[in-house]
Design a protein around this nucleic acid. Structure first.
Lengths: 140, 140
DNA sequence: CCATTATTGCAAGTCTATTGCAAATAACAC
DNA sequence: GTGTTATTTGCAATAGACTTGCAATAATGG
């Protein structure tokens, strides 16, 4: 059982662990692709979990706020995707331009670069987005 | 005068250099920030150039297709921005989370990383997005 | 200048995501 | 378990970015 589904993080912020939130977390747990809100919606429908698309949006936002879920804005997709955080290290992704498959890149090369950018621009760097797209082995 | 506004790139693809396309190119030339479609629209209105928002969208798409303009998807902005290419080197940006100022980063550290990703994932890498956000010197 | 064909403006539509509000339900005290 | 209360949900409506259909307009080539 996911630590998350016991609801500590939620209750600690005055929120409740509900059936729909459990269902979204469980779906994200058994899915190994970052999912969009509409994908979460339709996959839960197929699994006979009654949930409104609006509730999906509200749920992923809450899960993001309490740090259980990460929001991804992949390269020119026009929609956000969500994946479980679950103590995983910060990482990036590559997405196949043809079949849409998304693969994790288990690295982030940007720590040194962040220092360099801060020195050059005088900004304080807060966050970054790094996403690749290309052709996966099957689609080449 | 911008090379672009003479229209070779357009005519070479069976397209025409029109007053509105010139106006969009000229605006992008004199503006040193990447602009969104709605910003292009409103700034042209202020400059008394009659143009429809729909035409702005179609124009930036054409300019992107013929390679005069680059489309940026900045970090969780929910809209695209456009900047002139004009022979400039591929580069990335940092955006202030408070005032929205966007500064060019005149570097791209990803050539070696691209090779590494191709070796590890067997993808052929086609493109990437790398955008930073943070606090600019004035907003700190 | 004329004919052809690309381009524009307007209206309507699509898609992602958000908000208001009444009804449902989880958490908690008893 | 029962009841109370605040959170959460579903539905409808709305917002914002962007696209499409189509008739009217305007740029090019002869």
């Amino acid at each position: 059982m996911l630590e998350a589904t016991t609801g500590q993080g939620l209750r600690a912020t005055g929120r409740r662990m509900t059936r729909t939130r459990k269902a979204v977390l469980a779906l994200l747990e058994r899915t190994h692709q970052p999912l969009s809100a509409s994908e979460i919606f339709s996959q839960l429908q197929e699994a006979d979990v009654a949930i409104d698309l609006v509730t999906v949006y509200r749920t992923v936002n809450v899960l993001k706020e309490i740090g259980l879920v990460v929001q991804l804005d992949l390269h020119q997709e026009g929609q956000s995707r969500y994946e479980l955080k679950e103590g995983r290290k910060h990482h990036h992704h590559i997405r196949c331009q043809i079949c849409g498959k998304i693969v994790d890149l288990l690295l982030c090369p940007l720590k040194k670069l962040t220092k360099l950018i801060e020195a050059r621009t005088q900004f304080i760097v807060g966050d970054h987005t790094l996403e690749f797209s290309g052709l996966c082995p099957q689609c080449q």
